[in-house]
């Protein structure tokens, strides 16, 4: 009995030593990544996940000499299905769920496997859609800024057009081009962490540079004069 107990004790201690060595090794590995090589792996990780982006500064309005607004910018949110795989079942399931919230949503192919489901979603619908965005990572709500001009052909020609370049609207013709430096403003810069589906990770948005909105431009002609010319 004595011998067998001693033998058990010896064998048990041998196993305990193996476990202890294994635990020390695992702790050393943990220490290596958390402390010793931390900087190197942080930088490598940030290259994958951290992205810098610009956000729209807000283009100034164009007013006539009577302070009537002729051109202004409006922000909208559209719902897309940007699918990495051509899986019809997942697509249909996502659309079915979306239609419970937005009954008139439908597939409109934008690119190969990218679909626009609904334009101009209201803020309350965005809140309702939030759980679906987590469940179906291919569903994305993307912002869109549109430049609006009062609805007269003569005024539209006179005011001109804008195009998006480097995250900001820039005038390419007419008044929009002539006064672009005043209207455009400066884009803001942010940094954000993306998850594996390229969605923003909640709570990681960091402002790097504040956006400066463009200034309004007041013309020395009135709406009626533009229409006549």
């Amino acid at each position: 009995m004595e011998n067998s107990t001693d033998n058990f004790k010896i064998r048990a201690l041998q196993l305990l030593w193996c476990i202890l060595i294994w635990a020390i090794l695992a702790s050393c590995w943990l220490f290596y990544y958390s402390v010793f090589a931390r900087q190197k792996y942080m930088e490598l990780g940030n290259k994958i996940a951290v992205r810098q982006g610009t956000y729209y500064a807000g283009r100034g309005r164009i007013l006539d000499k009577n302070d009537r607004v002729l051109a202004w910018s409006e922000k909208y949110f559209d719902l897309y299905l940007i699918s990495s795989e051509e899986d019809q079942n997942i697509r249909n399931m996502a659309l079915h769920k979306v239609m419970e919230i937005l009954p008139d949503a439908a597939f409109h192919r934008v690119k190969d496997s990218d679909f626009l489901l609904k334009r101009e979603i209201s803020p309350d619908k965005i809140i309702e859609l939030e759980p679906l965005l987590t469940k179906f990572p291919d569903l994305k709500i993307l912002p869109r800024t549109e430049r609006k001009v009062v609805d007269y052909a003569e005024v539209r020609n006179y005011i001109g057009r804008v195009e998006f370049k480097d995250g900001n609207q820039h005038g390419v013709s007419g008044i929009e081009k002539d006064y672009d430096s005043i209207l455009a403003g400066t884009c803001g810069i942010y940094e954000v962490m993306l998850d594996r589906h390229k969605n923003w990770v909640q709570g990681t948005w960091l402002l790097k540079r504040k956006a400066i909105s463009g200034n309004d431009v007041k013309l020395d002609v009135s709406l009626e004069e533009i229409k006549k010319n």
């Binding site: 943990l30 990544y33 958390s34 402390v35 090589a37 931390r38 900087q39 990780g45 962490m193």
Partner: peptide
């Protein structure tokens, strides 16, 4: 393997903060 390495590196000696397991949650 890479994601485990990045997760441990983000923790460092004292950790990001309670509830801030962002990398683990995302990757």
């Amino acid at each position: 393997i890479r994601q485990f390495q990045f997760t441990l590196a983000r923790g460092g000696l004292w950790g990001m903060k309670w509830g801030k397991a962002l990398w683990a949650n995302s990757y």
